[in-house]
Measured scan of single mutants.
Amino acid sequence: MEVRTIKVFTTVDNINLHTQVVDMSMTYGQQFGPTYLDGADVTKIKPHNSHEGKTFYVLPNDDTLRVEAFEYYHTTDPSFLGRYMSALNHTKKWKYPQVNGLTSIKWADNNCYLATALLTLQQIELKFNPPALQDAYYRARAGEAANFCALILAYCNKTVGELGDVRETMSYLFQHANLDSCKRVLNVVCKTCGQQQTTLKGVEAVMYMGTLSYEQFKKGVQIPCTCGKQATKYLVQQESPFVMMSAPPAQYELKHGTFTCASEYTGNYQCGHYKHITSKETLYCIDGALLTKSSEYKGPITDVFYKENSYTTTIK
């Protein structure tokens, strides 16, 4: 009895394709271990004539594949690729409408935090270190965002349907971005203890939790000093293409032309909904596939993004 075979390709990165001759009487799992086709788990399936010449994702289970996976995804987590594939199996079914010149995501599976993050990423200057993220990001900007969303979920250790947080998501993504040249110098002034300067680099240099107003941050924000008295913390120097200011959701007025974009969060910790506000020729609110415009805006804002380049204080 002759062994019926077909020729397929296996890959971990969709760049390096490895030619395989597979036995049609055995499952993919018996031949390769966990195997995925377009995100779908085909591990328990036997090869079919229609699979001839198709590319299958496999887990990096030998040295060659491990090197290829690390170079593309910059992670050695053995569960990463499987999590990416199972997320992709959902995100490829989502709709990605162009809204006001940006790629958004039609609401499904509690994905409003991903839509808000995706919209924000198209408006701030950011370059990702893992080629996987950078490639998928370019495709997302062009309207094909399924891979990018699935990668975000995998890097953030999230599953489809789980509630997510924009600030946490951005923080994970910033860790995989090139923020080497970003720098922030802060000064804390206390009447009792004097003053202390701190220099922050990388992710810490672009994120701040405690106030939404970048102007206020430049002037000074009140913080408790270690001595128990009130101290003032203010920005001395900022070198970065953008800054992200966050605070627990509270009524906040966004003035046209003073910011790049913002995240609105309605609801409580267990259950809520994100919308995205962007400042173009007027203010726009993007909620999944829905767009509304207004000249002014007041609502429960939790993150505001500002364009920056270089700032030095005039406070002496």
Rank of each mutant, 00 (worst) to 15 (best):
E144K: 09
G288L: 00
K127V: 08
V203G: 07
K106A: 15
A40G: 13
T27C: 10
G143N: 04
T282C: 09
Y297F: 12
T198K: 12
M26T: 15
G257K: 08
L153I: 09
Q134M: 06
P131C: 03
P34L: 08
V58C: 10
R139V: 06
F174Q: 03
K46T: 12
K255A: 06
E68P: 06
I15S: 14
L121F: 07
A142G: 12
K44P: 13
Y274H: 00
N16Q: 11
S310G: 09
E204T: 07
L59T: 11
Q238E: 03
S279C: 14
F56P: 00
Y311M: 05
N129A: 11
M245G: 00
V12W: 09
K46I: 13
R83D: 06
V185W: 02
R184E: 02
N49H: 09
P224Q: 13
G29H: 06
I15V: 15
R184I: 00
G267E: 15
A69P: 02
F128R: 04
Q196G: 08
G299T: 04
L118Y: 00
K255Q: 12
A146S: 09
A289F: 04
N100G: 15
D38P: 06
P78W: 13
G228S: 03
N147M: 09
Y172G: 11
T159R: 11
S50T: 11
S181V: 04
G33I: 07
A40P: 05
G272R: 06
V221A: 06
C149P: 02
N16Y: 14
H273V: 07
C193H: 03
L235Q: 00
L290P: 04
D180W: 05
Q195W: 09
D180P: 03
I45G: 13
M26H: 15
Y84P: 07
Q31M: 13
T11H: 00
S279N: 10
L186N: 01
Q270D: 15
A87G: 02
P34Q: 04
A132M: 01
Y137E: 04
K280D: 10
Q230C: 03
M244D: 01
T226C: 12
T198L: 15
D77M: 03
G164I: 01
Q251D: 13
Y96G: 06
I315S: 15
F174G: 04
T232H: 04
N61D: 15
C285W: 14
L81W: 09
